[in-house]
Design a protein around this nucleic acid. Structure first.
Lengths: 250, 250
DNA sequence: AATTATTTGTACGTATGTATG
DNA sequence: GCATACATACGTACAAATAAT
């Protein structure tokens, strides 16, 4: 999972601590070194350490307890699944282990119909890339991804890019920074497309994840529907009660 | 949505800005005042303003763009639904408007079976509150909530509390601070319980949200299954690509 | 039971870097 | 090149919660 360059001290410390939590250097339910110890270890100001710890906190790696210290959580380890982050299928497949394959069913430039005009907020004149891909895991076609990209921002696409990772291409080749996405999870009846491209095995509905994806400058460039066979669908989320807004500092 | 006291300057500023975004004082796709202007307006240090803005950013209210400013997003307004936060049904029902009702089907103290022992990480000796509630919206029973509370932490429950809001009771009466939760969304076949307590109308499966809820001191005190009729299920999530770890400051 | 030390939380101020216009 | 605005980092002080004396 790489993206734009982030060579700040706090981010590098964060990455190092994530690594040490994942490889067991810091064990679940034990305390991390104190902020003061980290200060000396990394020779940075306390605020810098607190930023790194805040990222760990925000992403569910640790719990910070005032007066006590930071405790390593094992939630990530227990559910080794991408938790509420924007990740591509390639990353998920890699994390899950099993054999996976992407089959490109369609790659075309289209004029947006009324639905796509609304979802991508474009006029009839716009040009849109339509990408249809089947995701096969352990020999079963269980996910159908239908993507629509605004050609104004994603100017060029090829079969090879779609079969690898479009996100990697967007961030590394096109040098665009993906900012955020709004996800919506629903259950729908299978469409004709679902029936042809998925191994539905008689399941009477599909779980649909609808995604609007924005760049960092707030331009909406992608609308995606990820259509899952219900028995294979799983979504894991980590939520804090108040995103306990204790922020680093100063 | 209230919880533990948070009277910090940055949090109060955050709340005030949320209010102003929601009531339209700050319009979507326009820029907020600069950090410098906020500094003068609130007579606080820049870091304090940046903390407040960071909370807005993290929760999808604004996008921060270096060199330009902070732009108000309309994602929250478009999907007026609790976005990836720990919220109780009472809050959701209130936000949705329509008529809603909670029916308490069962409230009992039980000894945990093998499944609950695993999910709540307790021994056979523990005592567990079991709460079964039906959620009715516009006259249809579409959600079945099955909660298990560790009596060690939630010592006392009544019919009235369960029919109102257990979360309010936990936070306001018991003065416990809820820390975080791990959610998992799956699709399952209806159980006998689902069939008796839900208006399933022939739907062959239910969407199940499994929830492990922890206090701020990391004690696991609740396991919940929220079982939804699939046609009425909807989950909205806001995700940042890298939770762009720019933190306030210093 | 009261005090002190430790550890995290909030807030202030300053300096410099980087992106935008 | 310059001004503006956000980003990162340093340092200091004190508050609040916890743990140890």
């Amino acid at each position: 999972m790489k993206s734009k360059s982030n060579h700040t001290k706090s981010f590098m410390i964060y990455e190092e601590l994530v690594e040490k939590i994942q490889n067991g250097t810091y064990q679940p339910n034990t305390k991390l070194p104190t902020e003061h110890e980290f200060m000396q270890q990394y020779e940075v100001a306390r605020g810098t350490i607190r930023e790194a710890l805040q990222m760990l906190y925000q992403n569910g790696y640790i719990q910070k307890i005032q007066g006590k210290g930071s405790v390593v959580l094992d939630i990530r380890r227990k559910y080794n699944f991408p938790i509420t982050e924007l990740v591509s299928f390639k990353q998920i497949a890699k994390a899950m282990g099993g054999t996976s394959r992407t089959i490109l069913q369609e790659l075309s430039l289209i004029k947006p119909d009324a639905f796509i005009q609304t979802e991508l907020n474009v006029s009839t004149a716009a040009e849109i890339w339509k990408v249809v891909r089947t995701r096969e895991i352990d020999g079963e076609k269980i996910i159908l991804d239908v993507d629509y990209f605004n050609k104004q921002y994603i100017t060029f696409l090829t079969k090879e890019i779609c079969e690898d990772s479009i996100y990697e291409y967007i961030e590394n080749e096109l040098q665009l920074s993906i900012g955020f996405a709004k996800k919506e999870i629903l259950v729908e009846e299978p469409t004709e497309m679902d029936r042809t491209y998925l191994d539905l095995e008689g399941f009477p509905n599909v779980v649909v994840v609808k995604n609007h994806v924005y760049l960092e400058d707030i331009t909406l460039f992608q609308y995606t529907e990820s259509r899952h066979r219900p028995d294979k669908f799983r979504f894991v989320d980590f939520a804090r009660r108040f995103a306990n807004y204790s922020y680093p500092n100063m």
